[in-house]
């Protein structure tokens, strides 16, 4: 049971780290637009030039 004296401070430190990480994310605007970012991965990026877009469509 004595290990608790050691483990719980580690857990608390981890939580403090998580809170710090969360603050960093919020202050960086990571949560400002929840709608777009999740879908961005679905949009294909290789439509910079027409031929690429066309060949892509034929797949």
């Amino acid at each position: 049971m004595d290990s608790l004296y050691f483990l719980i401070p580690i857990a608390v430190a981890l939580v403090a780290f998580a809170v710090k990480l969360f603050f960093w994310a919020v202050n960086n605007g990571q949560y400002d637009d929840l709608e777009t970012e999740g879908r961005r991965i679905l949009f294909e990026d290789d439509v910079q030039n027409q031929p690429a877009a066309d060949s892509d469509k034929e797949k």
Partner: peptide
């Protein structure tokens, strides 16, 4: 070249 818009 952005007609993918209509798909998305």
């Amino acid at each position: 070249g952005l007609d993918g818009f209509y798909r998305y």
